[in-house]
Design a binder for these strands. Sequence first.
DNA 1: ATAATAAGCGGACCGTGGTCCGTTTAGTCT
DNA 2: AGACTAAACGGACCACGGTCCGCTTATTAT
Lengths: 193, 193
Amino acid sequence: MTPATPAERSDAVRNRERLLAAARELISECGAEGLTMDRLAERAGVGKGTVFRRFGSRAGLMLTLLDDSESAFQARFLFGPPPLGPGAPGRERLIAFGSERIAYVVEFGDLVLAAENASRGRFDVPAAALWHRHIEVLLREAGFDSDPWLMAGSLSATLDPERLLHLVRDRGVAPERLAASWADLVTRVVKDA
Amino acid sequence: MTPATPAERSDAVRNRERLLAAARELISECGAEGLTMDRLAERAGVGKGTVFRRFGSRAGLMLTLLDDSESAFQARFLFGPPPLGPGAPGRERLIAFGSERIAYVVEFGDLVLAAENASRGRFDVPAAALWHRHIEVLLREAGFDSDPWLMAGSLSATLDPERLLHLVRDRGVAPERLAASWADLVTRVVKDA
DNA sequence: ATAATAAGCGGACCGTGGTCCGTTTAGTCT
DNA sequence: AGACTAAACGGACCACGGTCCGCTTATTAT
């Protein structure tokens, strides 16, 4: 039987691991801004073309680096315990989603930022589509009926990493305050109907 | 008497005008994406250094290009007739502000987009600070009392040009629908208190 | 073992925004 | 008019993300 994905060549696997290791090294040494594709290639002992073949772009690399934590986050709000996961009312889950997302963005700051500049639009990143859909579903569940899709987009925009990090880092706003404002916003949006 | 700004040299003035003219030409020929700093310099018959001396960056140039329409917009919501200008209740003015801003972004699409990438943060652009403050004031006027500053920021985020243009251009969402959703959002946020 | 083949590889190359610094020149002072 | 000076100029230069294409190599079939 031939697998749908025709099996990855062993050198490719090896190089991918080298690259990811080198990337994490570089980031812990110089921060995410300090990671350039040339340096990464050099550090990993690999040609530059290989880097792009693996990850497509710098943003793609960052996405890969975030993949584990992103999956964990998704698992928590899709299947985890309430109030983030299923079991709590929509409104509570929305509020919890916001604070968790804020915490996530603050924790992985530069990485998230660097992952944002996906070549054609940051809205087509699968993860973003998932959050959007999640918010939309919760809005409906909370009884929000007028254009929930667009409203979900507006609420998402509110959680834009660049904005959140600007507030936290350059303006000294505490994450808890952001979470409180998000909760306030959600409460008002969802209030009676 | 010596003016505070020690008077601009005549060649500088001449070059600025050449550059702006060339920029508008280039944009009308190739669109905003087609305007590169090298091409602009060449077209204007000027060194590249001069371009950067004048405008600081590509974003700065775009900002300059938008300056007239931006000022006009500001004048309208600061001093113009209601419901956009003073005279109408806060809630109405907020709603009007949103639709006008949406229309503005749709009209000047690429230019606005290109102006967004100001070197350090798009939040320090003076114009952005003004909109933010304007929204904050209107929120307060409409009786919104819990952290109006942060809420103003959240509402602003909702009007992010990249998002708006993505919806309109790539998703075929009508500007009127965006305006309606904004009105809905504002109404709920401001509702009783 | 050998040959065939497609995946993988590397690094020269490109266009871009942005910087630097030696040279030119407009405006002023005598 | 001539000299002086600070502003303005120009374009070589840099770092970066991304592309391209001829060469290498792991894998599979014989």
